[in-house]
Simulated scan of single mutants.
Amino acid sequence: MTLSLEQGLRLCEDAARRAGARPETAASLARSVVDAEAEGQPSVGLAHFVDYLEALEAGRIDGQALPEISRPAGAIIASDAKGGSAHLGFDTAFDDLVKTARDFGVAIFSQKNAFTAGALGYFVRRLAEKGLVGLAATNGPALLAGSGSTKPVYCTNPLAFAAPVENGPPLIIDQASSATAFVNIRKAAHEGKSIPEGWAIDAEGKPTTDAKAAVKGALLAYGGRRGANIALMVEVLAAGLSGANWSLDAPPFTSGSQTPGAGLFVLAIEPKLIDPTFATRMASQTERLSSGYGVHIPGPAKSIARKKAERDGISVPKPLYDRIAG
């Protein structure tokens, strides 16, 4: 089925409300997944929205929760999501976060007690569209083995970065600390497909290409020890600073009735206060890297996909549409 972006938003908002979400939560969740779908990221798009619906129905997301926002310092915005979605707290604080970054040069949004965040690049892209540099980190239930470990101790612990580019789409980097995202392992297990070597280990700590065994085991970090160290860094930023659950203590996001209590860290920087020509220099540098050296610049492809989706709509498999439509 082909839906316009507006139809996709209405579909998801209505479904979230039926599942117990207040209108603000429904709108925040819908916007995040439709944006991901439009950017060509179906694994964290409408397919992932089903995870949100099931979490709302089971109570892993408190659909009626309102985030508690506080200002412990001039440039710091703290949010207690109260068991609700990660997106509502960020949306509630977004305008203040942007203004604070412009006033002080930097601003931090730190959140605890939330459901998992989905596509992390979504948060920093919105900052870059306001002319800000953004850095984000988030955690969740333990899925990834640490350095020297054969048991999961971190979530996939992604790190995202975005920067504005004059007269063009922003640079956006969004990557997990794991060799692949958990949704890819779960999808392969559901479809009975194998996975590449180096993605995961089984429950006994042995390398595996069996996706079902990987789901019961642990994901592996990209780059071995270095990737695991980045996962630890993300864990400290997302959970340590915010007071959120460490990944080892986070209830699962696919079963049960408890929130994972995940953390989210977002840093916003106003580059114009340091270099007024930052966005201009970014444009010339990314063009030089791309055209002169063949470097892939992450971000523009998502912008192209979004514009196409705005024009042509998004394609949604009929079974997925029926599940969301109820």
Rank of each mutant, 00 (worst) to 15 (best):
M1K: 07
L3H: 04
L3P: 10
C12T: 12
D14L: 04
A16I: 09
R18G: 12
G20A: 07
G20E: 07
P23E: 11
S28W: 08
S28C: 14
R31T: 12
V33W: 00
V34G: 08
V34L: 06
D35Y: 12
G40Q: 08
P42S: 06
S43L: 11
L46K: 00
A47W: 05
A55V: 06
L56Q: 06
E57V: 07
I61N: 02
D62A: 13
D62S: 14
G63R: 10
G63C: 08
E68V: 14
I69D: 05
S70I: 05
S70K: 13
P72D: 11
P72W: 12
A75K: 04
A75T: 10
D80M: 09
A81Q: 13
K99Y: 00
K99C: 01
A101R: 03
D103M: 07
D103F: 08
F104L: 13
L120G: 02
Y122W: 14
F123K: 04
R125C: 05
K130T: 02
G131F: 09
L132H: 03
V133K: 02
T138M: 05
N139I: 09
G140R: 03
A142L: 12
A145S: 13
G146C: 10
G146E: 10
G146Q: 11
S147A: 15
G148A: 10
S149E: 14
K151R: 15
P152I: 12
P152Q: 09
Y154M: 15
P158H: 08
A160T: 09
V165I: 13
E166A: 15
G168V: 02
L171D: 02
I173R: 01
Q175G: 04
A181R: 10
F182M: 11
K187R: 14
A189R: 00
H190Q: 12
K193W: 00
K193R: 15
K193L: 14
S194Q: 12
E197N: 12
E197S: 15
A218P: 07
G224R: 01
R225E: 13
R226G: 09
R226W: 11
A231R: 03
A239P: 06
G240I: 09
S242M: 08
L248H: 00
T254W: 12
S255Y: 01
S257Y: 01
T259L: 00
L267R: 06
A268R: 07
R281E: 15
E287I: 01
L289F: 14
S291T: 15
Y293M: 13
G294H: 09
H296M: 08
H296R: 13
I297E: 05
G299V: 11
K302T: 06
K302D: 14
K302P: 01
A305C: 03
A305Q: 07
R306E: 05
R306Q: 08
K307C: 00
K308G: 00
K308F: 00
A309E: 04
E310M: 14
D312V: 04
I314V: 15
